[in-house]
Amino acid sequence: MSAAPRAPSSLLPLAAIAAAFAWSFAEATVFFIVADVLLTFIAIAMGLRVALLASLAAAIGAACGGMIMWRHGLVDPVAATNLLAAVPFVSAGMIAKGMASMASADWPLAMLRGSVTGIPYKVYAVAAGKEGLTALLFFGVTIPVRLLRFAVASSLVAAIDAPLRRRFDLRRRLMLLATFWLLFYGEFAWRWFS
């Protein structure tokens, strides 16, 4: 006798976790909208536990996507740097700062600082290849560095959302979050194109 099919709602957390992996993989390569956007929506819609599992999946997705960029930086650093420059919202200054920081002995700390100062992870991945860092070491450092940022973002939004649950329904809370992200990227675009 076969098992009964799972209810569609029980598949939603698995779909969210898979989407977090895919989004973060894409962001580690050429996509330019941070995975934090999806993770924070998951935190509100599905709770902190699912958001933290999605954060882990996103960290692994980033590490996997980072391996593609690492390889590109190893094989053809000029083409890889040109690819970075073609990604929206990645400036020459970000590329130069990220590349320089990966040449130092404290590059894991530089990656951690970069995750909160706006230098895209993809820059560090290309620089790691260019600097000849071993793939396994870079992959291993990526997961905790990315997980820390993703978990903090998810936890912060979940903490802000908790008192709002008494006053607003899910739809309104998601609209508030969408407004935040639209303002965030709007301000970023305004500074970028000014």
Rank of each mutant, 00 (worst) to 15 (best):
A125S: 15
L74R: 13
W107F: 10
G65P: 13
C64M: 15
G65C: 09
T142Y: 12
D76W: 00
L109H: 05
L74N: 09
E131T: 10
L109T: 00
A86H: 08
K130V: 03
V116T: 03
V78H: 03
K97M: 06
K97I: 07
M99E: 07
G140T: 08
F89G: 00
G73W: 12
L112F: 14
L136W: 10
G132I: 15
I68H: 08
L74C: 04
A80D: 03
E131F: 00
S104R: 11
V126P: 10
P120L: 04
A103N: 04
I119P: 07
L83F: 15
T81K: 14
G118H: 09
T81F: 00
H72T: 08
G66V: 08
R113E: 04
I95K: 02
A135S: 10
A92G: 11
F138I: 00
T117G: 03
L137W: 07
P77G: 03
A127T: 01
T117H: 06
A92V: 09
A103R: 08
G66R: 03
A128G: 12
S101D: 09
S91P: 03
A100P: 08
D106N: 11
A80E: 00
G93L: 07
A103Y: 02
L84W: 14
T142C: 15
L137F: 14
P120F: 10
G140R: 13
L133P: 02
F139R: 02
A80V: 02
I95P: 01
M94Y: 11
I119C: 05
G132K: 14
W107K: 08
A86Q: 15
Y124C: 04
G132Y: 14
G98Y: 05
A100R: 14
H72N: 06
V90P: 05
A79G: 11
M99Q: 14
V123G: 03
G61F: 10
P108F: 08
C64W: 08
V75C: 05
A110W: 05
Y124D: 03
G118C: 08
W70N: 02
L137I: 12
R113S: 06
G61Q: 13
V141S: 00
V123P: 06
T134D: 12
